[in-house]
Design a protein around this nucleic acid. Structure first.
Lengths: 208, 208
DNA sequence: CACTATACGGAACTCCAACTCCGTTTGTCA
DNA sequence: TGACAAACGGAGTTGGAGTTCCGTATAGTG
């Protein structure tokens, strides 16, 4: 899936510059208006014709996808940075907070997470550098669980769900201003020792 | 805000029947396809012409609003029923579970909660019977907090946010199948005794 | 300084989904 | 049962947003 011919030829200088302007404009417009943002507006915002937008990104979806790639590259950075944090709970919860903040800044991606999880998932897998993004998350989870600070029944798949949940509170800028409170309450529920913990999913014994 | 002239004239028998068929069809279509559902499809599903749909509901939004009214009437019922439950935690958490299930059954309302909270709020206020819906929720919260089973910093406004969050996981039927797990973990975080509780919002002293 | 491939701009096109209109049908009531 | 207001059906209209097309402009090259 990695680009088979990334070296298809270096872009002309103006083309490279415009491509970036379009990306920046798209980020701004999508952050502000969500998927409502219109291609013409993005073009205008980038001070470029619509045609130029379409030369670089053949469809609106392709443009969103490009932003999603960028987003997951940052998520990946956050997760890696969290690996450096000593305290396993701070590492885990710090990543969750940071990731949620990142999503909170882009309304269109919050919408996409709810409506097109497939697209987000594809972008998430593409974000992998040498070590996969999800593997990094898995490590954060395992560390926190081994340290006994994260409930043992927490699973990797819970992370996208949590992000999507919190993201949905961002779609309507203004209402639901309390999303951080909700997140903190949820985090309290994720700590080991919360009432209704179940045994970890696939294991009946701890590591021998 | 209650209908000023509900008695504008009794509908003709066929009109009354068709109105109901449209509502039923809309409920089905919106539940299945979310806001993507098309007016023509709804008409077809109700075995009725589009014109008939529009005679009863002048816009798509009006149709959604009618469903939202119905939805909040049920939410109201749930909340009242919860008042009858002895155990204050069961009452509170039972309502939350029931309410989330209700929203989970209607994709379009889950989308609307995220995108048009204003519309949902209006419908929620309209749901009031003699006792307001939100007052009932407030009572559930206070009872649980007085009993020391719900964290004292939990607020009424957290309920719509929680519903919206969980609802967003329903928008893409299929992905995010773990929403009930997320809810249970969140509920664990809502119980009194969770780590990072803050003092209740407006009070520095308990009731004297 | 030509010359050409590459890129640009934005008017025009297309498609789709909400909504309208009007000729036809049907319930109601005297 | 006849008359008429109320309701119906669905082809057609409208508007809006994504996408295309092509004449013009410009970066890169010999």
């Amino acid at each position: 899936m990695a680009a088979p011919d990334t070296a298809t030829k270096p872009l002309r200088a103006d083309a490279r510059r415009n491509r970036q302007r379009v990306l920046d404009a798209a980020a701004r417009c999508f952050a502000k208006d969500g998927m409502q943002a219109q291609m013409d507006d993005i073009a205008g915002c980038a001070k470029v014709g619509v045609g130029t937008v379409y030369r670089h990104f053949p469809t609106k979806e392709a443009l969103v996808r490009a932003l999603a790639d960028d987003y997951f590259a940052r998520q990946d950075e956050l997760a890696r940075a969290a690996l450096e944090v000593r305290d396993p709970w701070e590492a885990f919860s710090g990543y969750i907070r940071g990731g949620a903040n990142l999503l909170a800044e882009n309304r269109a991606l919050a919408e996409t997470a709810a409506e097109r999880p497939d697209l987000m998932q594809a972008a998430a897998f593409a974000a992998s550098t040498e070590r996969g993004f999800f593997e990094t998350l898995e490590t954060l989870i395992e560390r926190a669980q081994s340290a006994g600070v994260l409930r043992p029944d927490f699973q990797l798949e819970d992370i996208p769900s949590i992000m999507c949940s919190l993201g949905s509170l961002q779609i309507s800028r203004g209402q639901y201003a309390n999303w951080r409170r909700i997140l903190e309450m949820l985090l309290d529920g994720l700590r080991a020792g919360a009432r209704n913990e179940l045994p970890p999913p696939g294991a009946s014994l701890p590591h021998p």
